[in-house]
Nucleic acid binder design. Structure first.
Length: 469
RNA sequence: GGCCUGAUGGCGGAGUGGUUACGCAGCGGACUGCAAAUCCGUGCACCCGAGUUCGAUUCUCGGUCAGGCCUCCA
């Protein structure tokens, strides 16, 4: 099976070839845990979860190492802790738990490692030490700065030559920087903020160094795939790359590279504008999940190709809901079919995903397989078991159809409501048997008021919860 | 100002040098006591201009528009 991925560094699709097929490594930049994350923050979670699943399918479950970091040292965390008068650990534990819960609800598998900055401090300090030692970094006024002049290819990832960036810079340059693009590896903490001891004085790490240290500690350099949002290309990933290359004991470029493939997901937009906390146009995944099944939100997040911008609208959610209702409806009608006996190659079903994670094409194939299954069941052609297996195999790699169809349609009803519904359905069946249409319709109206939709069929009436949102 | 993306039908969204997926919504029909679900059929698009070509929505250049990055950011 050959997987092709768009590499930001190469600016084109490249065949994916891991350095070691028995140990495939992927790192994705994760959240800063100081609050609930908005739905846009979960786009990479879901996108790279699909990639994780595809890789596991190709190379084997135990062969893929997927690390997603958690930033738990940060100004915003400090501010939140100060506001509540609690240690930062209380803030970060709380919001990390919420984040993981939301990710799970969206069908994302746990990464194989979830390193935290506070637990990587020794590796961070050691790496800064190496950078200072080999003159890639310098100490100045209590700070340690990375010397961007030390890395000849600085700017290559983002396509921004250094001099052009300086020409267009709109930020004030700290006086202790040798070069305007130099960035902080270590800085003193403000009074009252958490700090760690280091050879350059007490303080805390800059933003970029934690990822590089975590990658080295968790996965080892170089890694196969490095992922994140498109906004991270510059400066975050550019800086990671520069310090990572220079931190190698072999010197600048001494190892085979930092990451062999750079993947970046596009933004999720609200009404043509990026969803952003500073713009105030955020929808929290945590709130959305109270209104919609996680699979519906996951579907909406994967409905556009991951590199394209994704417009987040109520209509997109409702279309996602319709699509899943259709697929679950087919599965419900095929519930008596035992999946199996497929002669088809898994590669056929994976093909859309193997082409740079083309999830919309994957959805198209899901729907096609579902329609084929429906027809095979209806016409009793004997092809149903194989088609059902294919459908479920693709759905699993995409993280869909994880529930029993009956639970999908009726899961929103508690036991008491179900008893009430069954009684009403029975009464309506009796009325229909007596051709008392007035009474039958009256009961249906009663069920509608309970948010229940009735569907008459040859084997009697079935029902489902209607869409909530 | 510099750099980088994108522009497909009413909406969402793939893809392709020549017959343009699919979903939702719409319309007609079948089925139904009426519905729902399902099935059959059907209308609707490739931003503008130039170039390359027998032929461009697809390739090239220019333009327009939109979005992003250059500051925390998925």
């Amino acid at each position: 099976m050959s997987l092709t991925l768009y590499d930001t560094m190469a600016r084109k699709k490249r065949p994916f070839v891991p350095a070691n097929p028995r140990r495939v490594t992927m790192y994705v930049c994760g959240p800063t845990v100081y609050n609930y994350s908005h739905i846009g923050n979960f786009r990479p979670v879901v996108v790279f979860d699909v990639l994780f699943r595809v890789l596991r399918r190709i190379y084997g479950e135990s062969a893929v190492l997927y690390a997603a970091n958690v930033t738990d040292v940060d100004d915003k965390i400090n501010a939140k802790a100060a506001e509540e008068g609690v240690p930062i650990g209380e803030i970060t534990d709380r919001y990390l738990a919420a984040y993981n819960g939301d990710a799970q609800a969206l069908g994302a598998l746990m990464p194989t490692a979830q390193p935290r900055a506070t637990q990587t401090m020794a590796a961070i300090i050691a790496m800064i030490g190496r950078l200072v030692h080999n003159n890639s970094a310098y100490a100045a006024e209590g700070h340690v700065l990375f010397d961007t002049q030390a890395y000849g290819d600085y700017g290559k990832l983002s396509g921004r030559p250094l001099d052009e960036m300086i020409a267009g810079a709109r930020v004030e340059v700290a006086p202790y920087k040798r070069h305007p693009a130099d960035f902080v590896l270590w800085k003193p903490s403000k009074p009252g903020e958490p700090e760690w001891e280091s050879p350059w004085g007490p303080g805390r790490p800059g933003w970029h160094i934690e990822c590089t240290a975590m990658i080295e500690q968790e996965l080892g350099l170089p890694i196969d795939i490095h992922g994140g949002g498109i906004d991270l290309v510059f400066p975050h990933h550019e800086n990671e790359l520069a310090q990572g290359m220079c931190a190698d004991p072999g010197g600048n470029g001494g190892h085979a590279g930092y990451a062999h493939y750079w993947l970046h997901n596009g933004f999720l937009n609200m009404a043509d504008e990026k969803m952003s906390k500073s713009l105030g146009n955020v929808t929290l995944a945590h709130d959305l999940l109270k209104l919609q099944p996680g699979e519906v939100i996951r579907w909406a997040l994967l409905a556009a190709h991951y590199r394209q911008p994704l417009a987040w609208t109520d209509d997109a959610l409702s279309q996602a809901r319709n699509s899943l209702d259709h697929l679950y409806g087919v599965l419900g009608r095929a519930r008596h079919i035992e999946a199996g006996g497929s002669g088809a190659l898994l590669e056929d079903q994976l093909e859309p995903l193997l082409d740079d994670l083309n999830t919309p094409a994957g959805m198209f194939l899901l729907k096609k397989l579902a329609n084929d299954l429906d027809a095979a069941v209806r016409k009793d052609t004997g092809a149903a078991p194989a088609i059902k297996q294919d459908l479920l195999a693709l759905a699993e790699v995409m993280g869909f159809l994880t529930q029993d169809p009956q639970v999908w349609f009726q899961g929103g009803a508690d036991a008491g409501l179900k008893i009430e519904i069954d009684a009403l359905i029975a009464a309506r069946d009796a009325a229909r048997a007596a051709k008392d249409w007035g009474e039958a319709d009256r009961i249906r109206a009663e069920l509608t008021a309970l948010n229940i939709e009735v569907m008459d069929g040859p084997a009697g009436a079935t029902w489902r919860m209607k869409e909530q949102a």
